[in-house]
Amino acid sequence: MSAPTLTKARTGRSVGEQAIRGLLALAALVSVLTTTGIVVTLLEEAVSFFREVPFGDFFFGTKWTPLAGGESQSFGVLPLIFSTLYLTFIGLLVAIPVGLGVGIYLAEYASPRVRRVFKPVVELLAGIPTIVFGFFALTFFTPLLGDLGFELRIFNGLSAGIILGILVVPTIASVSEDALSSVPQSLREGAFGLGAAKWQVVVRVVFPAALSGVVAGLVLGASRAIGETVLILVAAGNSPNLSANLGIEHQNMAAFIANTARADISAGSVAYGTIFAVGATLFVITFVLNLFAIRFVRRYRQVYE
């Protein structure tokens, strides 16, 4: 009886292992290369834009008319940034309470049967193309708000902002529901065992324990709202406004890019460069938001094992 062979064999199996490894690495490489490519393109075009337009004029100017001709052309991006953040703010004003409400309800209060039906419906909402939300806002919600007595233009920030919030609800609801559900049952039992009422268990134990996950959901939602394009394009109109008035048009950065990209301008012109300058700015804003979120999550993560 001979001892079993333990040496490496040049067999088909090891070749297969190598091939699988190679394919997976390739897949990882594709995403890294794409990201790098995007950043490089953005920066390249943005840099050439800033050779034409001074930095200060762009970031501190309050007049945004990049497509106008001659003297009236101005590249102050503040109105665009303001409208973007303003719409996002209105959206989150709707999305955070509703989204968290849905998440908490599904994770803590709904019976298993209700959850089985409700959760897919909420997630279905996330799958509706945003153009549908856009026309819903434009043709249904704006007139409805008008009937309710709001003074609105056809394209306005109020309707678009609220529907933007609805659009973000599933993201926040779904992520926060996951975070709440993954809090161990033993923590709930511990709190119940001390005579806490249901809402006290949820507010004082489960929610804080899930906070980092919930915040991740909020940031994901905020990122979606900041970058939302089609809904704003369709329902909020074509000019950014440095004004708190929600009854007027409010164009956000993404919608500006989309709108300008199909406008009749020549590649290489300064107007064309604005696309990339605005894109880079949007990229930085989202990036910083994520950075803050990661720090927050690290700092307040509650480990419960």
């Binding site: 923590l187 039992e189 511990g190 709190a191 065992g193 001390l194 005579g195 806490a196 006290q200 804080p208």
Partner: peptide
Amino acid sequence: GMVFQKPNPFPKSIYDNIAFGPRV
């Protein structure tokens, strides 16, 4: 009151764990 099989302190400080019940 109840004490469970696996220790299940809340992910809070020692002080806040004890104070939880009275605060509730």
